[in-house]
Write a protein that binds this DNA or RNA. Structure first.
Lengths: 343, 343
DNA sequence: CCTCCTCGTGGAATCGATTACACGGTTGCG
DNA sequence: CGCAACCGTGTAATCGATTCCACGAGGAGG
C-alpha cells in the first residue's frame, strides 16, 4: 500500500508538502497542490490512520461498551450513538459485554489500548478497578443509561420514576393488588432504581411489595423465564408482573405461555423499554419507552464536549408509559406505523 | 500516559528489554524480567496498540460491515462474529450500512484507513468501485450472507432454496394459490435469489407468480408496510404473503392489522429469517431460520484463514423452515425456551 | 540598494512501539 | 588454553504520518 513517501516521490515534492496538501494547510502553491492531488489519484493513496493517530495522539474514535447487543434497546442506542458520532467526524467501536463484568473489562481494556478519544459506558456492574482507574486517570468518559455511583463522570439517562408511577396507577386502576417485579442485577443502577421506584409508587397506593414478589433477574430472557416460573409456583401467584427490561419480559411471556395461562386474563404483564415488537406480541405489551435516540445523541454530545476540554453536565430525559393490552385495558395500535429512529 | 521509555527508565533497562519481556521473548534474564514487570505495575503501563500496529503492520482487528444493525438477524450475526474473533485474539469493528450504499462505502473506507487485518461484508448493493478495488488489491475479505457475483472472494452463507421449497409446499398444502412475495433490493443476492427460489418452487406446484404479486422492498419495515398495502389494494389480493426478511414481515403485519384483517384467517404470512420475537407475535410467524451463529463462526474462520495466507473455500449452510401458525395450520411453541446462541 | 517580511518548501525530529545487529561476557569443547 | 557458540542486553533503524524550524526567493518599504 502506497505511503506518503511514494506520493511525495511521484509528485516531486517532499512529504511535508504532501501532508500539508492533505490537511489543507494554507501555504501550498497551487502548482504543488495539483501535482500532489494527481499523485494521490494515480497511486490510489489512502492516508494511514494508524500512523496519523500515533503522531497526533488522537484517533477520532469513540468506544461504546454496552451491556447486551441482543437487547433491542441497546441496539437502537448503539445506532443513534454511531449516527451522532459520525456527524461529528468520529467513528465508534462497540464492545458487547453480554452482561458479564469480565467481558466488559476486556472491552474497556482493548479500547483503552487503542487509545480511543473517549469512552461511553453502560456499566454491567458496580465498577471494576480498571474502569474506576480509567475515570480517575482522566479518560474522557460518559455513562449512558446506567452509571456507577460516586464516580465523577457525567451520566446521560432516562428517568423512569414518573413513568413507573403512571404504570402503577394504571395497574391499580385495573384492580391489581398483588403485583410482582422481575428486577435487574442489584449492582446496576437501572437494576436497583427501577425496583425502588416501583416499590415507592406502590406504597403511595397502599400496596406492599413482598420479597416473594421481588424476583432477581439479570436482564436476560432466560432469567425472566425462571423468575416468572417461581412466581407462578407461589401458593398465591401475583396478578401482575413488571419486568425491568424487554428481554426478561420476553422470558416471562414464555413462562406464562408454557403454563397455558393467558395475558392479561390470567396475569398482567408490563415491561421497561419499549420496542417495535411489543406492538405485535400477543397481546401487545404495555411498556415504558425511553427516548433512546435522544439519549444516544446527548451522550455523544457530552462525550465530545469532554474530549474537547469542556465540562458537560449530566442529562436526564423523561421516559413515558405506553399503554397497550397486556395489563387488561388499553387501546391497540393498529394505525401506528412501525417505529424507527430518524435517519 | 506512561510509554515504554518510562518503563525502561523505571526498571533501569533499555526499551528493547522491556519490549522483549512484554512479548515474552525467551532471552531475557529473570532479574530483568521481574524488574520490568514491577515497573509496569507501578506505572500502570499499557502498551500503545497504535504504535505497535504501525510497527508490526497488523492491527489484530477485523472489520464487519453489515446492512442493518436494527435487524435482529444481523445483530445476532455480529454477536457471533465478535465472539469467534475474540476467541482467536481479534477485535471486531462493526460498521452499520443501514442498507445505504453510501454509508457502506463510508465504513469500508474508514476501516481500510485503519488498516484492519481483514474485512467481513454483507454488501448492500452490487459492489461499489471502492469495495471492488479493495478486493482486487488483495485485502483479505469474506462475504457473509450476501455477496457480489463475479468477485473472487469466499462467501459464507445459508442456502434457503430447500427451505423455501418446503415453505411453498406448506402454503400449497394449506390451499393457498394466490401467493405474493415482498422482495429485497434486486441489487443484493439475497434480494434476488429468494424471489427466484420462491418462483421456481411455486412453478413446481403449477402456481404462477405474477408481477403484481412481486413487491419491491428494501429489507426495512417501512417498505414491507408499503408493499403490503399495495397488495391489499389489488382487486384480487393475495392469500399469502412471503416477506424476504423479518423487518419487512413486521411491516406487513402492521399493514394487515391497520386494515383490520386477521392473520392467518384473512391472509397468511411467512418470513425469511427467524427471530425470538416471532414466537410471541400474534400469531406466531412461520419463518425460515438460518444457522446464524454457525454462519458467523464460519465467516471468521474463513477470514482469519485468508489473513494468515491460506485459501479458504466458500461455505454454504442449510436454512430450515420453522412452521408456526401464521399460514394457517402449525403448532405453537409454548414449551420452547427462548432461543439464544451459546455463550 | 539594503533590510525585513512573507511565502512556499524541504529537512529532520517526533510519536511508541519492534527488531536487526553489535557487543561484551560466559561457557563448552577440542 | 584458545576459539567458537551462546546469552543477555543495548543502540539504532524503522513504520507513516505531522510539524517545527530554517532557508532561499521575491516583494515592499525606507
Amino acid at each position: 500500500m502506497a505511503s506518503i513517501k511514494d506520493v511525495a516521490a511521484e509528485a516531486g515534492v517532499s512529504v511535508a508538502t504532501v501532508s500539508r496538501v492533505l490537511n489543507d494547510h494554507p501555504s501550498v502553491s497551487d502548482d504543488a497542490r495539483t501535482r500532489v492531488l494527481a499523485a494521490v489519484q494515480t497511486l490510489g493513496y489512502r492516508p494511514n490512520a494508524v500512523a496519523r493517530s500515533l503522531r497526533t495522539d488522537q484517533t477520532r474514535t469513540l468506544g461504546l461498551v454496552i451491556s447486551d447487543v441482543m437487547n433491542p434497546y441497546f441496539t437502537e442506542l448503539a445506532r443513534s450513538v454511531e449516527e451522532a458520532a459520525r456527524a461529528l467526524g468520529y467513528s465508534v467501536i462497540i464492545g458487547n459485554a453480554d452482561e458479564r463484568p469480565d467481558l466488559q473489562d476486556h472491552h474497556v481494556r482493548t479500547l483503552l489500548d487503542r487509545r480511543i478519544d473517549g469512552l461511553l459506558v453502560s456499566p454491567t456492574d458496580g465498577g471494576s478497578p480498571l474502569m474506576l482507574e480509567a475515570a480517575r486517570a482522566g479518560t474522557p468518559m460518559v455513562f449512558v443509561d446506567r452509571w456507577i455511583p460516586g464516580v465523577d463522570v457525567p451520566v446521560v439517562r432516562a428517568d423512569g420514576q414518573a413513568a413507573i408511577r403512571d404504570l402503577v396507577a394504571h395497574l391499580c386502576r385495573l384492580g391489581h393488588r398483588r403485583v410482582a417485579i422481575i428486577a435487574g442485577p442489584a449492582a446496576t443502577t437501572t437494576g436497583s432504581e427501577r425496583v425502588r421506584a416501583f416499590r415507592e409508587a406502590l406504597a403511595e397506593h397502599g400496596v406492599p411489595l413482598p420479597d416473594a414478589y421481588t424476583g432477581q433477574g439479570d436482564f436476560q430472557a432466560e432469567s425472566g423465564r425462571r423468575v416468572t416460573e417461581g412466581f407462578l409456583d407461589l401458593p398465591e401467584p401475583p396478578e401482575a408482573v413488571f419486568a425491568a427490561d424487554n428481554l426478561m419480559a420476553l422470558g416471562a411471556l414464555d413462562a406464562i405461555r408454557a403454563r397455558g395461562l393467558r395475558v392479561p386474563q390470567d396475569i398482567a404483564l408490563a415491561a421497561f423499554d419499549d420496542i417495535p415488537w411489543f406492538v405485535h406480541t400477543d397481546p401487545p405489551v404495555t411498556a415504558i419507552a425511553q427516548p433512546t435516540g435522544e439519549l444516544g445523541r446527548a451522550a455523544v454530545r457530552a462525550l465530545v464536549d469532554r474530549i474537547e476540554g469542556r465540562h458537560p453536565r449530566s442529562v436526564t430525559l423523561p421516559a413515558r408509559l405506553v399503554v397497550r393490552r397486556s395489563c387488561g385495558e388499553g387501546r391497540d395500535e393498529h394505525q401506528t406505523p412501525v417505529q424507527r429512529s430518524t435517519s
